[in-house]
Computed example of a mutant assay.
Amino acid sequence: MKSKLIIAVLLACALKTMAQQPAANARNRGRFQVGDVTTDPGVRDPCMAKEGDTYYVYFTGGGIQVWASKDMKSWTKQPSVFSVAPEWVAQRLPSFKGLGFWAPDLSFHNGLWYLYYATSIFGKNTSVVGVATNKTLDPNSKDYKWVDGGMVVQSVTGRDDWNAIDPNLAVDENGNGWLSFGSHWNGLKLVKLNPDFKTIAEPQEWYTIASRPRDYKYTDPEPGNGQIEAPFIFKKDKYYYLFVSWDSCCSGVNSTYNVRVGRSEKITGPYMDKEGVNMAKGGGTLVRGGDTGDNKVFYARGHNSVETFDGVDYIAYHAYTTTYERLGIEKLAWENEWPVVIVKK
């Protein structure tokens, strides 16, 4: 939690570092290919979308930052989602200041783009997930306007053993919306939404879809072993695939972030890994992690999203190098109905 709360500061430092290295950035800009990571922008918690002929990446910090590209190679900064925080955030979290919104999730349904995001109070699971909608992602369109949809869910320290951050919307085969979310504490949760995709359906039923044994208390300011966060549910053929991130983010070369997956024929689970272990009981098959061996370039990869563009499946994540977080985009293949990253040679 502590590491999440200093995101804005670290991101600002990263951008300052980039500004101080114009020659290096100029050499690398324009050479990005799928399977590489970007020099610019540096991101955390990316989600991707495509509208028309333009790709967008939304990510943590600065009121939710946005970059756009025509080719997934060269990116241009766009306006942030928020220039001021919605009034309800301070009402729910009285000590909240600034624009420290995290982990956006973006998808298109019912003629609207739905953007879910989170923020929290330092050292606690007093957290909220909010939603905003827009008719278009193009800031040059006359229809471009983010409309605040209010709070979707809140976790309260002392009441809840889960944490309302890292949201992801998934829609089942019947068109029902489901919100997954969670970071550390007692695992990742799933709850059904009403047809407006903004409020929780009644009667409320909460599912634990992934969890890990832990060696720390809920009141510890920093989690120890057993860290898990950032659920993302992706439907492929008959299965729902649950991607999650294990271990430590936000620590540069000391980060140990890695992406795990399990699958289920029901959106509510249980999600089982390749070995048949339930993800709610510590299961999870490795999809992507840090480099191994002595010549590491990327020390960790995590907090992913998965999208399909023009019939091709992609995984996007942030990768830790010796300098700062970078955006990674790779193609996914499916072997025996399990996702496999196509590693660029």
Score class of each variant (00 low, 15 high):
residue 233 I to W: 10
residue 227 Q to R: 12
residue 224 G to E: 04
residue 229 E to P: 10
residue 226 G to T: 08
residue 246 W to I: 03
residue 242 L to Y: 03
residue 246 W to N: 12
residue 252 G to R: 02
residue 236 K to W: 01
residue 258 N to Q: 13
residue 231 P to Y: 00
residue 256 T to L: 05
residue 243 F to E: 04
residue 218 Y to E: 15
residue 217 K to G: 04
residue 212 R to K: 15
residue 242 L to M: 09
residue 224 G to Q: 05
residue 249 C to M: 03
residue 245 S to G: 07
residue 232 F to V: 14
residue 232 F to K: 10
residue 210 A to T: 06
residue 219 T to L: 03
residue 219 T to R: 09
residue 253 V to I: 15
residue 227 Q to G: 01
residue 258 N to G: 07
residue 251 S to L: 13
residue 221 P to N: 00
residue 249 C to P: 05
residue 212 R to T: 11
residue 217 K to P: 04
residue 244 V to E: 01
residue 219 T to Q: 11
residue 241 Y to C: 05
residue 218 Y to S: 14
residue 251 S to V: 09
residue 222 E to V: 14
residue 241 Y to P: 11
residue 227 Q to H: 00
residue 212 R to M: 13
residue 218 Y to W: 04
residue 216 Y to D: 06
residue 241 Y to T: 04
residue 250 C to H: 04
residue 244 V to R: 00
residue 227 Q to I: 12
residue 244 V to Y: 02
residue 245 S to C: 13
residue 248 S to Y: 11
residue 235 K to H: 13
residue 226 G to C: 07
residue 229 E to D: 11
residue 231 P to A: 00
residue 237 D to H: 11
residue 255 S to R: 03
residue 210 A to R: 02
residue 247 D to Q: 07
residue 256 T to C: 06
residue 244 V to D: 00
residue 216 Y to I: 02
residue 240 Y to R: 08
residue 223 P to E: 09
residue 219 T to W: 05
residue 238 K to C: 06
residue 232 F to W: 13
residue 255 S to K: 00
residue 216 Y to P: 05
residue 247 D to I: 01
residue 216 Y to L: 04
residue 246 W to T: 07
residue 223 P to Y: 02
residue 214 R to V: 12
